[in-house]
């Protein structure tokens, strides 16, 4: 049976791992290569690297980092963060990334999704969406959560899938950093709305949050950063608990 996926996310800036709370207050949580190796060894199912570096050197350092990760890591990994052109996608995939996550660039230029999917297949295109619940709607934000696009989360997700995204990575900006649990209602709706794998991100604070995620929604992956980096939740224990709760998980 297909297992649910536990996915640590490594936010990278200038080659180091950082994680903010509600996208502010960046803290250094280690060297990406040793952290990645550690996660692969203790049973992470996949890894996501999001590069938030905003300098001109970004491109070169990110490609070099991806090449190093690929040498060491024998589980799949996704790379994202400011990917806005097919040339960078080419470089990342050729250097060992399995998938690329595209966020703001898809809002500016939705054809990029078609282009990457057409060239490499839907399986390597992760459409990342940051969204915030405002009044009764879920609105998509771009540029690291600073710009309200006015797009509806569900309609936008559907469009991205129609354009060739093979997976959706949905981050709830309301829940991110709160450790109060995943955004269950929105995830229920989203995972019924699109028929590709959905990774839930934002809000994980405890083992129980993952049990709820996989029991109550069709999400196929749960992503978190600081709770893994700082040891609040240990992946082997998390997987044991999921297994005990009857959730299909790789142990």
């Amino acid at each position: 049976m297909l297992a649910k996926r536990i996915i640590p996310c490594l936010d990278i800036k200038n080659g180091r791992v950082v994680k903010g709370t509600n996208f502010i207050n960046l803290k250094d949580a280690g060297d990406p290569i040793s952290l990645a190796r550690h996660y692969a060894e203790i049973g992470a199912d996949e890894l996501v690297f999001l590069d938030i570096t905003a300098t001109l050197e970004k491109r070169k350092t990110l490609v070099a980092l991806v090449e190093e990760i690929g040498k060491v890591i024998d589980i799949p990994f996704t790379v994202g963060g400011g990917i806005s052109d097919i040339d960078l996608v080419d470089e990342l995939l050729q250097n060992g990334a399995d998938k690329v996550a595209i966020n703001s660039a898809a809002i500016r230029n939705p054809d990029l999704i078609n282009e990457v999917s057409g060239k490499y297949g839907a399986q390597c295109v992760v459409a990342a969406i940051d969204a915030k619940s405002i009044d009764d709607s879920w609105l998509v934000f771009s540029k690291g959560g600073t710009h309200n696009t006015g797009l509806d989360l569900f309609l936008w997700a559907k469009e991205l899938v129609d354009r060739g995204a093979g997976e959706i990575l949905f981050t709830s900006m309301n829940a991110d950093g709160t450790k109060q649990g995943f955004e269950i209602d929105a995830l229920k709706k989203l995972t019924e709305y699109v028929n590709v794998p959905v990774i839930a991100s934002g809000g994980a604070g405890s083992i129980n949050d993952f049990v709820t995620l996989f029991s109550e929604t069709r999400a196929t992956g749960g992503l978190a950063a600081s709770i893994f980096h700082f040891g609040d939740v240990a992946i082997p224990e998390l997987k044991q608990e999921l297994y005990k709760n009857g959730i299909s998980i790789r142990i």
Binding site: M1, L2, A3, R5, A122, G166, E167, N195, P197
Partner: peptide, 9 residues
Amino acid sequence: IVPQMGWNT
């Protein structure tokens, strides 16, 4: 859910 993506037995 398609594609199948992940670890299967």
